[in-house]
Design a protein around this nucleic acid. Structure first.
Length: 514
RNA sequence: GGGCCCGUAGCUCAGCAUGGAAGAGCACCCGGCUUUUAACCGGGGGGUCGCGGGUUCAAAUCCCGCCGGGCCCGCCA
């Protein structure tokens, strides 16, 4: 790698300018995967989560008071927290992301960009870059071009008058005193500089490197050997890699480029489209494992994700987990290795537990047919009841099982949010009449066997096909053609409750005679 | 203007690095001993691997050119 370190550090940027979304954790997760890989080879590694809280505010995100426009161009670490719970806007935003990372089980060392500048961590690199700004400028022009005038210094002094950084420009560098003379006369996003002319020391954090050099400085100062990057900053990485080599004289870190996440239709994820997924939202519907699996499955390439598909992701996760414990079933050696690796990384190399003895899809179906007015505890009991019966597990075991409880919660959230208007179920008149009759005759004191027998008795009396009878009920209640033995199902749900559920569906027009 | 990703079964995708008999899950269809149902088990249909060239004994896979869908950069990062 060209550099020798006892600890191989990887880095991930922690955005502090806006609300975190699902892609934000993807960067850290990918970096963390590399860290685990390094450690698996017996080397020491560390993930640095570097908060970009020195960045200036570029736009006021939806959900932030409109008058925050007045802070445009100021470092987010110096803007007050709109909610008042953190010491600054930037800290509020990055703490949300940090919370998500912790929930995902990522271990990292946090570094605040603002503190990095203030503490002098980057001094050596900042000085070198400023004092060699003609070299940086040349690289920028060769690689990506620049709209800035020739000889531009890629450093944003912080205006001591108005506090902005993106409205300033360096007029003169005075290396002997490690300071620059600047003018606050640039325009940024419609905000004009205050016109102040002053001086700023570049070794006391009175400013910030532009992206054309900041990565290179960070990598050097922190000894970073790997950092992933989204495709939106590929240019930035290329420029910084050259700056690392040609100005700061070291081998830049390795990287992978990854694609942005897209929504289910392949469209861009954006606030205005209302399809933004935050890590917190994800974890309302699906365990962290599924998110880790998704991220580790493919390091680059476009991915379409949607919260509505969470049951599929959980299903895939369960399948992989089962396969992991049955590797012999996989014919191809290569598939076997990649599945093994995927599952182990999904569990962060901390050991792979056995698959749960029940399936989320079953939990979801039961939750879907549960009455809506149940409390959380009642719902857990309701689902636990039926699932324990179905999978032949002791009920207490389920009620003690954290994973199961979480499944029920995911399912409840899912049903509440996405319970699609199921289409109507058309049931032939005769069959419907038979079902009505059957419902009339079931009583709460009947056992599963009785109910089952009664079903067939009614079927005989009415002279209809058993298949149609059962299928109609399953379609109406579960939205599918088959299900658990009807007697068991009704007995577990409770005959009168079941009757009520069915009749409500008729009243709501979800079941129509045909 | 520059760059990237994707296109394989109805749907979601794997396979492409290192060319060697088209795959999975879901969905669908059919069975499961003369009507006791099974969120299960067994079986099945279904694909010009976007299009056209090229290399090769052999191409989903490599090369070139198109077409379609999408994304990013060109302010900031």
């Amino acid at each position: 790698m060209g550099r020798n370190f006892t600890v191989l550090r990887v880095e991930s940027g922690i955005g502090a300018s806006g609300f975190p979304h699902i892609g934000s954790v993807g960067d850290s997760l990918r970096a963390y995967g590399v860290k685990l890989g390094i450690e698996a080879r017996g080397l020491k590694s560390e993930l640095i989560a570097y908060s970009d809280d020195r960045d200036g505010l570029r736009k006021v995100p939806a959900g932030v008071p409109e008058d925050y426009r007045k802070y445009l161009g100021m470092p987010v670490s110096e803007i007050p927290d709109p909610w008042g719970c953190h010491s600054s806007y930037g800290e509020h935003m990055s703490s949300m992301l940090i919370d998500a990372l912790e929930k995902l089980g990522i271990e990292f060392t946090f570094i605040s960009g603002t503190e990095a500048y203030n503490s002098g961590l980057l001094d050596e690199q900042v000085a070198k870059l400023i004092e060699n700004s003609h070299k940086v400028d040349k690289i920028v022009r060769e690689e990506v071009g620049s709209s800035k005038p020739e000889g531009w210094v890629y450093y944003w002094p912080r205006c001591e008058k108005c506090g902005r950084i993106y409205t300033t420009r360096v007029i003169k560098v005075i290396p002997e005193e490690k300071k620059v003379i600047y003018a606050c006369d640039q325009e940024f996003k419609g905000v004009k500089g205050c016109g102040h002319v002053g001086e700023a020391s570049y070794v006391r954090g009175e400013g910030k490197l532009s992206w054309k050099g900041e990565f290179a400085a960070r990598w050097a100062a922190l000894g970073i050997v790997f950092e992933p990057h989204g495709k939106d900053i590929t240019d930035s990485f290329r420029v910084n890699a050259r700056i690392a080599k040609e100005v700061l004289s070291y081998e830049p870190p390795m990287t992978v480029m990854y694609e942005m996440f897209l929504d289910a239709t392949g469209g861009k994820i954006s606030k205005s489209k209302g399809n933004v997924i935050t890590p917190q939202m994800w974890m309302k519907y699906s365990p962290p494992e599924t998110l880790r699996m998704l991220m580790f499955k493919r390091y680059h390439g476009t991915r379409n994700i949607s919260l509505q598909n969470t049951p599929q992701y959980i299903n895939e996760f369960e399948r992989n987990l089962k396969l992991y414990h049955n590797l012999d079933k996989i014919k191809s050696e290569r598939d076997r290795i990649s599945l093994k690796r995927l599952v182990e990384y999904t569990f962060l190399l901390e050991g792979v537990p056995p698959p749960p003895p029940y399936e989320y899809s079953a939990v979801l179906k039961v939750a879907r047919m549960a009455p809506r007015d149940l409390s959380r505890e009642e719902l857990i009991k309701f689902v636990g009841d039926i699932i324990s019966r179905y999978y032949d597990l002791p009920l207490e075991r389920l009620l003690d099982d954290e994973w199961f409880i979480k499944y029920v919660e995911y399912a409840k959230n899912y049903v509440d949010s996405f319970s699609e208007e199921e289409g109507r179920v058309v049931i032939p008149q005769q069959v419907l009449a038979a079902i009505e009759e059957f419902l009339d005759r079931i009583t709460d004191d009947m056992n599963a066997e009785d109910i089952q027998n009664l079903a067939f008795q009614v079927i005989k009396e009415k002279g209809i096909k058993s298949k149609e009878f059962f299928r109609s009920i399953y379609r109406a209640i579960l939205g599918q053609d088959g299900g658990p033995r009807l007697g068991n199902l009704i007995q577990r749900v409770g005959p009168s409750r079941f009757r009520k559920m069915f009749r409500e569906l008729v009243e709501e027009g979800k079941i129509v005679p045909g």
